[in-house]
Write a protein that binds this DNA or RNA. Structure first.
Lengths: 131, 131
DNA sequence: CTGGATCCCGTAGGATACTG
DNA sequence: CAGTATCCTACGGGATCCAG
């Protein structure tokens, strides 16, 4: 469950400095796209190959998987390993930093599971009032 | 009319997956846009009026502030209150659920502050290797 | 198997002007 | 002050074909 943490720890990241506001933007630039968090989540249990990822992430196109993997590799979130065997294949794995990102997004995931039904209700009610 | 969220239907295209994988997408539909998390963060200390928000969030246009506020209001993240005084004004405030969202995103914020320099370094090194 | 190259489209989102 | 209404452009992202 998500605690209503009003303690000093949560306050650290939420000081209303203009700098921090920029940080919010930057983090969304990294993981705010359509597929990055899904890839990170899918890799949480260990390395996977390109086709395994493609099969695991339903609906992703080859192009977007490639693009997303390149971006995450560039940001140091995951590592790419080419195996020179026949047939050649490539595996992707979270870096230590990538693992910390996965942990940092876990609360948001829990929040979504806990509150999405409530949000659906809020939307329905809002739309009804406006209908 | 501008449809920020396509509603619950958008998730149906990705069924045949464990449910929580879909949740990841839905939560990004809510807060994954350019301004939502910034608005939530800005409202963390209490209600603000439209112009105060506009001034606090650097770079946001009137249109996007309106659109973002409407979406968050619809999702039950914040509440909108019209004050019938002269001159009339409107204030926005996080709902209790909005406050839990703010708390759930706090770890991600802290992560970004801690790791963004490292990411910049990783990018620079990656670009150098590819240069 | 892994991915690069191209084409194409929908939509997020910025600029601007107008209203109660 | 707090929006609404248009217009317009950039970019995310899907489909498809090609290559190592």
């Amino acid at each position: 469950m998500i605690a209503k943490n009003s303690g000093p720890e949560s306050a650290q990241a939420q000081d209303a400095q203009p700098q921090d506001a920029c940080r919010t933007r930057e983090v969304l630039d990294i993981v705010g796209d359509k597929w990055s968090l899904l890839v990170v989540r899918t890799l949480k249990d260990g390395p996977l190959r390109f086709t395994q990822l493609k099969r695991s992430i339903d609906g992703i196109s080859q192009r977007m998987l490639t693009v997303t993997l390149r971006g995450l590799e560039r940001d140091g979130i995951l590592s790419r390993t080419v195996h020179n065997v026949m047939p050649p294949h490539v595996s992707y794995e979270l870096t230590p930093m990538g693992a910390t990102l996965r942990d940092a997004t876990a609360p948001l995931l829990e929040w979504s599971i806990a509150h999405l039904p409530h949000i659906d209700a809020a939307r329905a009610e809002y739309d009804t009032r406006r209908a």
